[in-house]
Design a protein around this nucleic acid. Structure first.
Lengths: 195, 195
DNA sequence: GTTGTGAGAGAACGATCGTTCTCGTATGAT
DNA sequence: ATCATACGAGAACGATCGTTCTCTCACAAC
């Protein structure tokens, strides 16, 4: 049987990362074999290993790729929800509301990935910590822009509410934690200035 | 070589659950083999399987056991920190502060366990959801007792802050998220009555 | 046309791990 | 004392999976 046509290198890379994203996110890293990534990406195992020499490497590449895509989506979604005058810090929870409705929602891929990392995998942990730091920094930027007089704990507290809402919605399967977090954020942004 | 003396059944059960708790929590469920549980518990594989017919069963038993022990510790720690007049809802973060200093802290064992569960494991998910519901209910009880006039979103928002603080401290490795969450909780409990 | 290179298909290998089986022995009943 | 049962020790089995290897063919250069 003749081999299937070879895909262009960059298209193959994209297909691999897309397959990794879908499978790793929905079933966990340990729950997906390289064979399944190969099948879903439509590449050969040989090609897969030539692009990512190990599963660890593939996971790192996936996390980095997802980081840029998720942060892009998040900042856009917050801007969109803040466009009608909603406070940007409060709008972060409207963005989360959209996300949770996505089919296959399973919480935060980054938190999930370190939770299942047995022993210490410094590389993956570092990527996850950088991602979360990114999130906290974006929230801080919004807070400094819209609430310059707010206490210094406001932005990190909003970030804590965001992560808490993400994990609780994954556990409970409903929007209630986001709704409660949004109410708290609304209250905090309205009453914490100059305190 | 003569076999080691057989341990009494209930002592063996306790040793198995203690070993499972230490190993599963520190290295993840998939990262620990039944052989290691056997070694750490000091029982034979035969006995281990006679008490828990499968690893799944052992994980369920471990989660249930940890649930009762963790909730007992948590409620006690909150009471202890609230004894000096600190608001009970705020004291939850003082309790978390103690926990995070524990050597080997790796965040919430329940959240970690569902994060690494590939596919859908309904049994474990149900235990985790029940645990988190328990936590939310305890916080609600404290809120109704000490802040009867508070809005209905206060207790679930505090619970979101608790879970967010737990996961962020695990990611960042410092107390900052707990400190910020505590400040937010303090502000919320002081200003949200009757609103 | 010949030849060399790169890659697809998928078998194979080695390690890990959940689970079961075998064997030998200690213990308790008769 | 004999025998049956229970159980510890640990080998063995089977499945899974990350990784590599082999075989083959397409295609480009000369």
């Amino acid at each position: 049987m003749s081999p299937a046509s070879t895909i262009a290198p960059d298209a193959a890379s994209r297909a691999i990362l897309d397959a990794a994203d879908r499978l790793f996110y929905e079933r966990g890293i340990a729950g997906v074999g390289m064979d399944e990534i190969r099948d879903a990406a439509g590449v050969s195992l040989r090609r897969l290993y030539s692009v990512h020499p190990s599963k660890r490497d593939l996971v790192s590449a996936w996390l980095n790729d997802r980081h840029t895509r998720w942060m892009g989506w998040f900042t856009d979604a917050v801007d969109r929800h803040a466009a009608d005058g909603t406070d940007a810090l409060v709008a972060t929870f409207d963005a989360l509301d959209d996300w949770v409705d996505t089919p296959g929602y399973r919480g935060c891929a980054f938190l999930n990935s370190i939770a299942e990392t047995s022993e210490i995998d410094d590389e993956h942990r570092a990527i996850v910590a950088a991602h979360k730091r990114s999130l906290v920094e974006h929230v801080s930027m919004l807070a400094m822009r819209d609430h310059p007089g707010a206490p210094s704990w406001l932005a990190p507290a909003i970030a804590v509410l965001i992560d808490g809402a993400i994990v609780q919605t994954a556990v409970f399967g409903d929007h209630a934690p986001i709704t409660a977090a949004r109410s708290a954020a609304l209250h905090l942004t309205r009453t914490s200035e100059h305190s």
